[in-house]
């Protein structure tokens, strides 16, 4: 299921054909393009933004889109395009690191559980996962920020914790099927230990699954960060964030709807891009699943 080279493609020229198929997948190309736009916007914002996002310009406050400010200005006269570019940094960084936390803890746990399938350790790891799943993530994020104070770092931790069981379960179930394969048996006969087999033979073959799930968790992380910063529990002022831009726009929504429109569109398009990319990657890695979910 995950061993791409062995199951679906001829061994020679496989990477070339993978690229060819990738470029033919509409959802993958569209999704990757959307994602790339926002990642580039975040990167460019470190070097250049149309206006300074901390500069207050009351003379130009609450202006709709114009040639000077393509997406208009907010109640302090700040340029919304610039704020969205800088806000992309926080969203992307929080979601990215949260996925990193999930993988860093979840993947080893899943590999370990699979290597000792049926043992007490496996049972403890899996029940621990169930327990984390049982917690309402938003409420725990709120608990964490209630205790340690609101900040982007605490938002990362809160979102990251809930990524751990996702990756642990996925890795375990992927690894369990791989442990049945002949090449793993061969490795065992050759005297390799469970840890070495997990790293050398199992891990490379679950990478595809992890990439697809990582993309999906990335998009969920963006949504979660937006929600947390909307209620004031994410990145703190003066750092612009998409969620807080929406919160600030709310009282002015009847006469300045553009202030609410563009940050929301930024979230929607980023999440949509990542989801499309995830779908595209899944079809690419495992054509049998095409059009299923």
């Amino acid at each position: 299921m995950t061993d791409l080279r062995a199951d679906h493609l001829p061994p020679s020229g496989a990477p070339v054909r993978l690229w060819g198929r990738a470029l033919k997948s509409r959802s993958l190309v569209l999704g990757a393009a959307l994602t790339l736009i926002f990642v580039l916007a975040a990167l460019v914002s470190f070097l250049w933004t149309p206006f300074d996002v901390t500069g207050i310009d009351i003379a130009n406050k609450i202006k709709g889109p114009s040639a000077r400010n393509p997406l208009g200005t907010d109640h302090f006269g700040r340029d919304i395009l610039s704020m969205i570019m800088v806000g992309a940094r926080v969203s992307i960084a929080v979601a990215f690191v949260a996925v990193g936390i999930g993988m860093a803890f979840g993947v080893p746990l899943g590999l370990w559980a699979a290597a000792r399938k049926g043992s007490l350790l496996d049972e403890v790891i899996m029940r621990g996962n169930d327990l984390v799943f049982a917690f309402p993530s938003l409420v725990i994020a709120i608990l964490i920020t209630a205790i340690f104070g609101p900040s982007a770092v605490n938002a990362i931790v809160a979102i990251g914790i809930f990524n751990i069981p996702v990756f642990a379960r996925l890795t375990r179930s992927g690894a369990l099927t791989l442990w049945q394969k002949d090449y793993v048996l061969a490795a065992r006969v050759a005297g390799k230990g469970a840890a070495r087999i997990s790293v050398e033979h199992i891990l490379p073959n679950v990478t595809n699954l992890l990439i697809v799930q990582g993309t999906i968790q990335f998009s969920l992380g963006i949504l979660a960060e937006a929600g947390l910063s909307y209620v004031g529990l994410g990145a703190q002022p003066p750092t612009p964030s998409w969620g807080r831009m929406l919160a600030e726009s709310q009282t002015m929504i009847s006469f300045a709807p553009h202030m609410a429109l563009f940050p929301g569109l930024a979230i929607l398009l980023t999440v949509l891009g990542l989801n499309l990319m995830g779908d595209g990657l899944r079809d690419l890695f495992d054509p049998k699943l095409r059009g299923r979910s």
């Binding site: 949504l223 909307y230 929301g264 929607l268 999440v271 949509l272």
Partner: peptide, 15 residues
């Protein structure tokens, strides 16, 4: 549904 999954619900609420 692809759009519905991607839309932040509080933003949809504001709209």
């Amino acid at each position: 549904t692809q759009l519905g999954v991607a839309i932040p619900n509080f933003w949809f609420a504001m709209l």
